[in-house]
Design a protein around this nucleic acid. Structure first.
Lengths: 342, 342
DNA sequence: TTGTATGCGTTATCAC
DNA sequence: GTGATAACGCATACAA
């Protein structure tokens, strides 16, 4: 079944030394054409030719060692795998970050950690100067990675509010206000009994969205109309809605803590024979790419995910350039996108 | 607004030298307790204490340099950003790969390249021994990264068939057979005029799915019933369906090249007043998490994305262990998942 | 303009 | 068991 790899060419990689020998110059001169410096046209030509013939490529480790920097920035996603897949924002955040990092000629290396072993290894990497800076997505309370970053003083930016007492630069959105506003708008469509499927209350995003919901409803808030689930997740959202419907068959509006949850809400509603938005109005949160593909298309809060990634990256790029950055949060706009589900 | 970072602690990181001095031993002994070797209990205790007090962490670059390896494996996604976000499989593949890499105590570093600049930088990294091996997702024809990998002899595994003449290990699914089978099943639901929204014909996956579709239909295949779009994408799928409907209002079955495309098909069908699956049967490809959240839930081909990632990772782990691996493709099962859209 | 020498932080090979 | 010492591949200050 197929050819097999021959036992390693084991052809030693060419070094500066080889190039120098081939070109008949010293290693210093070679290094100079590589990094820019005074060098005669003649020597340059000879060296560039030599580089091609010996197939030279600079060694990252050696360069990092002497330069004391790696020109790489870590993008750390510390999430259980399931959630990583579920969350449509992470990809966009990552791409946004990569855009500005790339412009600064910095290599983004994405490290995803699920197990404790992963975390331990990533922490080791961070400490060892593997990266010059780091962007951390969804750090949790008492996160060992966060601790390491703070302890080592690695230039960093967090996406979402880091749950720590240490002042750290972070970027996110105002979940509270956005949740409050979209709930109000939902209520204004004439709903009398509006409930919520709240999720991820152990994170600031989840907790703030619930708080915003309460704020919007004020006196009319009824704790019986909110059911909580642990993660932003479709299936849990579906189940929660079934429970909500049982508890209060007269709900006519539902705020789902995320679009994925909202999709579950829609399915549950459809199965119960209710129509959206006529019988029940539904709003979500995220404005993921699937929001407009739901049926009916979801009214939701737009998360500027790419923008968040870009901003976070800018924050570490600035620190790498020696600039001071505010060690607190920067909030990006999260406008409401009104479609057909409410 | 907020505190600012103090101008760099600039506290030099502790080295083995510092530890040795603190513990009153030589650097060799320190290295020995770090990497396992004969060392007296007494010395070990002193050194471990010293490590804590000076806050020593090993330097990755230095270690990589002397060890001639990095214990890191690159996961390279070479895609336009839009597609990266659209493709629900990439995340799962990545997580699958990370699982087995993590078990082998290898750090997965994910490099995403969109611009030419990205590509150039990643190529540099690869060449420089930044990683010991590499997993490449969706390499294209004449891909500079693929070229570099082949030229350098870096242990690698491809996800999907690399478009090159060089024999390389890869893992994927049999798009042709899967497409053929699900098309047959769609036809068997009594459809007389079945069309296809074909996508990404410049890749093996897209081309093979179209070929399978043709094969299934045999004599009844009508080229007028297939419309092509460049990428696996919702909006393009929607437009394409509108065109198809105009061209052939009597279609009663549609094979969408992916779930995202299928979502577009569903929307177009709904807008045209047709019901699914009564008027038109629809099938997709991928079995992404949103397939079951469509309305109606999508009949589709299940892609074992996590499995693909795992297998690819195993392939490079094996090579890193000095084992020979077949330099051809390994195909994973991609069963049909029948739901309600056809 | 170019060559030489030194150091970056580790590991590994020796004697001791 | 332990301590010197030589690589590893590169950049750079300094001498030429």
């Amino acid at each position: 079944m197929g050819v097999v790899t021959e036992p390693q060419p084991s052809r030693r990689r060419a070094t500066v030394h080889d190039v120098a020998r081939e070109a008949g110059v010293s290693r210093g001169t070679v290094s100079r054409v590589l990094n820019g410096g005074y060098v005669s046209e003649q020597a340059r030509a000879a060296i560039e030719a030599a580089i091609r013939t010996v197939g030279y490529v600079p060694n990252t480790a050696a360069r990092n060692l002497v330069m004391q920097r790696s020109r790489a920035v870590g993008f750390i996603v510390h999430e259980p795998h399931a959630l990583f897949l579920e969350d449509p924002n992470i990809g966009a955040i990552m791409l946004g970050a990569n855009t500005v990092l790339s412009d600064a000629d910095l290599q983004m290396v994405c490290l995803v950690t699920d197990s404790a072993r992963d975390t331990e290894r990533v922490t080791r990497y961070l400490s060892g100067g593997f990266v010059d800076g780091v962007i951390i997505v969804s750090a949790r309370a008492a996160d060992p990675i966060t601790d390491a970053v703070v302890r080592l003083g690695v230039p960093a930016a967090f996406v979402g509010h880091p749950q720590t007492t240490v002042p750290l630069p972070w970027v996110g959105i105002d979940n509270f206000t956005a949740a409050r506003d979209i709930t109000r708008q939902l209520a204004k469509t004439g709903r009398k009994r509006v409930g919520m499927v709240a999720a991820a209350l152990d994170r600031d995003s989840g907790a703030d969205r619930l708080a915003g919901f309460k704020e919007a409803l004020g006196d009319t808030f009824d704790p019986d109309l909110v059911v909580e689930i642990p993660l932003y997740e479709y299936t849990a959202g579906l189940r929660a809605t079934q429970e909500l419907l049982e508890r209060a068959p007269d709900v006519d509006g539902i705020f789902a803590a995320s679009d994925a949850v909202a999709a579950g809400v829609l399915t549950a509603l459809r199965r119960s024979g209710r129509t959206v938005p006529d019988d029940v109005g539904v709003v979500g949160f995220d404005d993921s790419s699937w929001a407009e593909r739901c049926f009916p298309p979801l009214s939701t809060v737009h998360q500027p995910a790419a923008g968040v990634g870009e901003r976070a990256a800018q924050l570490v790029v600035a620190q790498l350039a020696g600039q001071d950055v505010p060690r607190d949060g920067v909030l990006l706009d999260s406008p409401i996108v009104w479609r057909d589900s409410a």
